[in-house]
């Protein structure tokens, strides 16, 4: 089977590696003056005591630590692959570089606990002609910790 070309639901938030086995990374910024990292990308450092405009693009993750999570049981706007019979997951993940991000989780509520190691993956939301529209989400790394 030929892998369809994968395109992001919205450009500029996550990478789509050539190798389907390689995890995506989140596209963020680092302030060259104070060292703070941000997701998503921004042009000006948000720290009140910095506000530098010397920011560079960086790739963040793909692993992180689960700060909090829930499973949502209301229908999403329309239908998508994010829905499951037992709801779709949403997590807050602390990335090793600093930022806390809020993104969908794969799987089921029972798969998660606060403090868990999680890793980014791409999830197909729908097919659009010869392309697959994908979003980034997180899943457990499988490490017991």
């Amino acid at each position: 089977m030929i892998q369809k070309r994968r395109v992001p639901i919205k450009g500029g938030y996550f990478s789509i590696p050539e190798d389907p086995l390689e995890p995506p990374r989140l596209l963020g910024s680092r302030c060259q003056r104070c060292g703070e990292h941000y997701f998503p990308r921004r042009a000006i450092c948000a720290r009140a005591d910095c506000l530098s405009d010397d920011l560079v693009d960086v790739a963040l993750g793909p692993e992180g630590t689960l700060y909090s999570f829930t499973f949502v049981h209301m229908p999403l706007f329309g239908s998508s692959n994010l829905e499951h019979m037992d709801g779709y997951g949403v997590g807050q993940i602390d990335l090793p570089e600093g930022p806390r991000v809020q993104l969908p989780l794969a799987g089921h509520k029972e798969d998660y606990f606060i403090g868990q190691r999680v890793i980014a993956e791409l999830d197909k939301m729908r097919e659009d002609g010869d392309t697959e529209v994908v979003i980034v989400r997180f899943r457990p790394t499988g490490d017991k910790k």
């Binding site: 639901i9 919205k10 938030y13 949502v72 999403l76 706007f77 329309g78 239908s79 998508s80 994010l82 949403v90 809020q102 993104l103 969908p104 939301m125 729908r126 979003i135």
Partner: peptide, 9 residues
């Protein structure tokens, strides 16, 4: 379907 990242949640 959601059209951007924030609509997904």
């Amino acid at each position: 379907a959601p059209e951007n990242m924030e609509d997904a949640i």
